[in-house]
Design a protein around this nucleic acid. Structure first.
Lengths: 188, 188
DNA sequence: TTCGTCATGTAATGGGTTACATGATTAC
DNA sequence: GTAATCATGTAACCCATTACATGACGAA
């Protein structure tokens, strides 16, 4: 029960702001995150169905009630259960918040996350990336000579990209710390 | 028949340098590309099996022949068919070379790719990224105000990352061009 | 002798995409 | 009237991961 999958969480976060049609949810997922992705309907609608079954969301059928039989636009909205689930997730700063496919989604809801949790998530992500950087760097030093110039360049660029992300996180962490007040929070 | 999947192509490229065990192939995939990935055996071995069936690779069973029944280390090597397929792929500068999950693999074999093809692939990738940048930027300008500071920052960072990749490509393209001689090659 | 790494494989499962099928509404 | 976009959904498929099962080899 504790934590749902990313997509469910993302949809919960989007629907909290206002009820939306499936179509609109998809667009929001595209512009709010990334903005380099477009979830297919083949993923979205089944997810909404699952969430209905789980009682996380409900629907306002616009004209479904008016005319007799026509299926039409459906506006989904959060139920109380869904809202509770979302709050529960927003308070959680565990590993699932730093992981690769999850961090962006989690970050996009920082405006609804309390400052301490934000900081812990940013620090978690930073630690994780720094670890990867170290492993990768070490592995690289061991085999450096076996690589041609292009492979080496590819790896250099890969490392550089991650290094930059770490710098970005450092900047955000610093901002969060100073907004929080002093030197109070300690990192693991 | 024309183009195989990325994994097949990557394995072909790795085995061309020398015959390897499945285990070693996996490690190479990890260090040569990225270096942020580790393919699972659940993907690797079935892929090798498919490639065997397709006649792209063959095996040197080390001690399989010596003792009677023991399954042991298997060194895979390219067959002539496999080598031909690889060459065919290496000459191809089509869209499948610029796509997201494919570009890295393709780039890692640039030492076995002729200069003109290299240039066309780099240009293709650059064009694709620049397009995405434009679309994303336009989409963003339209909805900017609807976003909170965190969402905006996430998008800013995403765009910046892609911009940097474009700069990286520009540098590589320039190098390839000057190595090629004059101003001869024309981009689409 | 036991621990870490090398080594090979299968079955169940998961999470996504594409292609298909359908139709309403809006702007030109 | 016709094209674009809005809008919903299913079925088939793809490609990967995780968990499981097995065992050899070298070093402490």
């Amino acid at each position: 029960m504790p934590h749902s999958d990313v997509l469910t969480f993302a949809i919960l976060g989007i629907l909290e702001r206002s009820p939306l049609h499936g179509y609109q949810i998809r667009k929001r997922l595209g512009t709010e995150l990334g903005p380099f992705r477009a979830l297919s309907y083949g993923s979205l609608y089944p997810a909404l169905k699952r969430m209905m079954t789980a009682g996380l969301i409900g629907m306002d059928a616009d004209d479904l009630k008016v005319k007799g039989s026509r299926r039409s636009k459906i506006a989904y909205r959060l139920t109380d259960t869904g809202r509770n689930r979302l709050e529960q997730e927003l308070a959680n700063a565990g590993a699932s918040s730093w992981e690769d496919g999850t961090f962006d989604v989690r970050f996009s809801m920082f405006d609804r996350t309390d400052p301490e949790t934000r900081l812990r998530i940013l620090e978690g992500r930073r630690t994780r990336l720094a670890e990867r950087l170290e492993e990768a760097g070490a592995a690289l030093r061991r085999v450096r000579d076996r690589h041609d110039a292009y492979t080496a360049e590819l790896q250099r660029h890969g490392l550089e990209t991650v290094e930059r992300e770490v710098e970005w996180l450092d900047r955000l962490i610093e901002e969060e710390r100073s907004a929080l007040g002093g030197t109070e929070t300690n990192s693991a």
